[in-house]
Computed example of a mutant assay.
Amino acid sequence: MPRVVPPIDGRTSNANISPSLVESVAGFTAGIVATLAVHPFDVLKTRLQLDIESRSQWGNSMRIFRKIVRDEGRLSALYRGLMPNMVGNSVSWALYFLWYRNLKDALQVYRGGTGNNLLSVDYFAASGLSGILTAVCTNPIWVIKTRMLSTGRDAPGAYRSIPHGFAAIWRAEGLPGFYRGLLPSLFGVSHGAIQFMAYEQLKMRRAAQRRGGPAQDLSNWDYLSLSAMSKVFAGSITYPYQVLRTRLQTYGAGQSYCSARDLVAQIWRKEGVVGFYKGLVPNVVRVLPSTCVTFLVYENTKFYLPRFWEDEMTYDVE
């Protein structure tokens, strides 16, 4: 007889499938779909973050877009580095949601184990620790992704693929090369922690407004709007870390910057405060649909996967 899986956000389903597996599959699927949808904006954002020659101004995104298309192989160049980006995002989301679910469950037990009695600080802590674990595990693939997005395929020394990137980094920089930019990434964990804290609270408030009870089945529009609001809130606070991480992970960063503190000083001295916000516009254009797609796919996969599994198990028994 199938066992009862603990409720997922207030939903109960009979299915012989682990909730942790559901979280991992939902996160993995969401990462793949979101990356395919918005990868060209990631290329533009990376190029803008590495542009230290020109001032931040309207039109820079279109200028770089035309330059990429003209000089690097038409529209296909906008998908340079797609594979490491897709691998990195899918694995990151899978690991993140897996740890996030388990940490929330542990905190739920700590708080008493009855109902949804977690506080904002609990969501912040679970999200923050999940982000740290994910950042440490996935930083090597982000280094390769950043370097592939920052150059055209035919540029001198450009990585041809993920294995080529791994081999080149290991040969030239050793193990430390895979963890360039980790410090800003760990600081960026605060972005995810703030976002998820806001998202969870917004979900509960929206559900309470509609039904007067705990979070249950919200609509797709709810997931889209709430994920967008939480992302804008978190991004408005933490964006500069992304500029620091990108510049520390690019080719030759070790020769240009002694440390993250040195990079901050150089940006402040040469570019001013606007230097910390380069690439913000394409980033907003990228992250809003990406976040909405990620959470929409994640929530729906998390909801339907146990039911699909239950139907398959029932069919097998019959």
Score class of each variant (00 low, 15 high):
L118Y: 01
S120Y: 12
S120M: 11
V121G: 07
D122F: 04
D122L: 04
Y123C: 08
Y123W: 13
A125Q: 08
A126I: 04
G128K: 07
L129R: 00
L129C: 12
S130F: 10
A135Q: 12
C137R: 14
N139D: 05
N139S: 05
P140E: 02
I141N: 00
I141T: 11
V143I: 07
V143M: 01
I144F: 00
T146D: 01
M148V: 00
M148K: 01
L149I: 04
S150I: 01
T151E: 08
T151W: 02
R153I: 14
D154A: 15
A155I: 06
Y159M: 02
H164T: 11
G165T: 06
A167Y: 06
A167R: 06
I169H: 02
R171K: 13
A172C: 10
G174R: 11
P176R: 02
R180L: 03
R180S: 06
G181T: 04
L182I: 01
P184R: 04
L186G: 06
F187Q: 08
F187E: 09
G188N: 11
S190P: 00
S190L: 15
S190A: 14
S190W: 12
S190C: 10
H191D: 14
Q195K: 14
Q195W: 09
M197K: 13
M197N: 03
Q201N: 15
L202E: 03
A207T: 03
A208T: 03
Q209P: 00
P214K: 00
P214Q: 04
P214T: 06
Q216F: 06
Q216C: 02
L218E: 07
L218S: 05
S219D: 14
W221N: 10
D222W: 12
D222H: 14
S225P: 01
L226K: 13
S227M: 09
M229W: 12
M229I: 15
S230Y: 03
K231E: 12
K231F: 15
F233Q: 06
G235F: 15
T238R: 10
